[in-house]
Amino acid sequence: MKVGITGGIGAGKSAVCKYVEVLGYPVYYADDRAKEIIVAHQTVRARIIALLGQEAYTSEGYNRAWVSRQVFSSPEKLAKLNSIVHPAVKEDFSLWASAQTAPIIFKEAAIMLEQSAAERNVDVVVAVMAPRAERLIRIQQRDPQRSASEIQKIIDRQMPEAQMTALADVIINNGDHDALIPQINDLIAHLSKSVGKLI
């Protein structure tokens, strides 16, 4: 069974995934792999240069800050960039998944519910939620170089929580006063039962 873990910035996707790994389940970190693919995958690299220009890469590698400025002011360019990167990540995930032997595997990605079911390539989608004010504080602590207004803009660009709640199969609440680990344990127990029925 392939389980997707998603959620807005600062909600706590990584915290959920780290605990899942402690329990012995493999996790594919789609956003991290995307960064590696953008640098190492020659076809992806060539298509990004064709879309945005040579400035997309420097002698030091992918020019992330410059690319971000180009695409976030242009929804059309952002969509085209995603259409280059997402299929490559999907293929990479499929290869990774085929090599796993665990009965349940996980895929962490910030963008998941925005995609079609085929693009997600998972059986269940779990959305991690936390209050906006708490997320803002967490991000500021983690990335002190980012201003509050910059973080707010990032949050505003992401899928609204109400929409995420409506589309996800499972919700995990990760506010400061929520007990995270019992929720994950319950999730694993439920998934394990579902896998047992499929076998």
Rank of each mutant, 00 (worst) to 15 (best):
L180I: 01
A65G: 09
Q152L: 15
V16L: 01
D31K: 10
E60S: 14
R157G: 08
V16Q: 01
K193P: 04
E91N: 09
V71S: 09
T43D: 15
P182N: 01
I104M: 07
I111A: 10
D123W: 03
D123F: 01
A46K: 14
A99K: 15
I104H: 02
H177C: 03
E36L: 10
Q183P: 11
V27P: 02
M112P: 08
F72W: 11
G12I: 06
N63K: 03
A162I: 09
I137D: 08
W66I: 01
D156P: 07
I105W: 02
S192C: 08
D186V: 01
N185R: 10
A166R: 06
A168W: 01
S98V: 01
E119R: 00
R138W: 11
M159G: 12
Q183F: 02
V44E: 09
A40G: 04
A166F: 03
L51R: 15
H177N: 06
V89L: 05
R120E: 03
V89T: 03
V67R: 13
Q183D: 02
I137G: 06
I171Y: 05
I137R: 10
D169F: 05
Q158P: 14
K77F: 12
M159Q: 14
Q42M: 13
L51C: 12
K13H: 07
Y62S: 03
F93P: 01
Q145I: 04
A34C: 12
A127C: 13
A88T: 06
L78F: 12
R33M: 01
L113F: 04
Y19F: 14
N82S: 15
Y57R: 12
S149E: 13
Q152M: 15
S94I: 14
N63L: 05
A166G: 05
L136P: 08
D92W: 10
P182I: 00
E60F: 10
V39Y: 07
N63R: 04
R138N: 08
R64I: 11
P131H: 07
V126G: 00
A99H: 12
